[in-house]
Amino acid sequence: MTFYRNLTIRQKQIAWAWAFLAVPVLFYGIIRFYPTGNAILISFQDWNLLGDRTWSGLENYRKLVADPVFWKVFKNTFLYLILGTPISLVLSFIIAYQLDKVRFMHSTLRMLYFLPFMTSAVAMAWVWRWFYQPVPTGLFNNLLAQLGIPQIAFLNSTTNALPSVLAPAVWAGLGFQIIIFMAGLRAIPVSYYEAARIDGVGWWTQLTQITIPLLRPTIVFIVVFSSIGFLRIFDHVYNMTTNNPGGPLNATKPLVLMIYGTAFNDFDMGYAAAQTVVLFVILLIVSLLQLRLLRSE
């Protein structure tokens, strides 16, 4: 106690600051950084969860590069990103832009768009999975059959399956992005639009010269946020394809699902950790790139 009494005020403040900071620091250290470091370590080892860990050097990474499934999965992961991010960005902007002008039932409409975001991804994926079934259970195919149109193999197809899985994932994330966009739109000062209208400028010029440039920080946030989400997509794919995870023929398998399978079905922890490190690097690069590209000027 005397030790504490002898400290200067400045030192006491630092001591208190650290006392409060200790909780998050410990949390991050133990829950985040320690396992991350451990995962990187395991990626250079061979371990089946039961026996001892043995060093295998770069073997796991060599196996990764030579694995055709990994490259297929790599491509899928970027397809989810390349399709998902722009589609959800454009859709959520259009909806937010229009919703911002609507006065009638504004809050109800906003809630309806936000609802899917609050719904459990697992429940949603299963409902969509049943929508996509062939006759006689699937909603979509039953409708098609009644109209006399041949059935569409939504999930049992190497070409249709990925977009079919992506659609509910986009829908689910839309509500959140709309709310963020609307907040961004509200933050633009009305005086700019008034000035534009006095000058007789049309809506298109207003949109491209005022709204979009001033929304830049919002767009950066949404792009980074949704990109990370699509790169880590798992729940929707796993639940819509549980019988044949990531199938058919790996057509829908994203990296996270491959990691999960390698770790908890094959018990090949080293290989799974190597895949995790690759995912980590991809996420890092994509995020940094987007921040740089969208923040320039």
């Binding site: 193999a153 049992n156 197809s157 190497t158 044949n244 199938g247 058919p248 023929l249 399978g261 079905n265 094959d266």
Partner: peptide, 20 residues
């Protein structure tokens, strides 16, 4: 050796003939 991986092999065998 790995039941789920070996099952997957047969799942894919049929899928290749069926879908592709």
């Amino acid at each position: 050796a790995n039941e789920s991986a070996q099952r997957q092999v047969l799942v894919d065998m049929v899928a290749r003939t069926d879908i592709q």
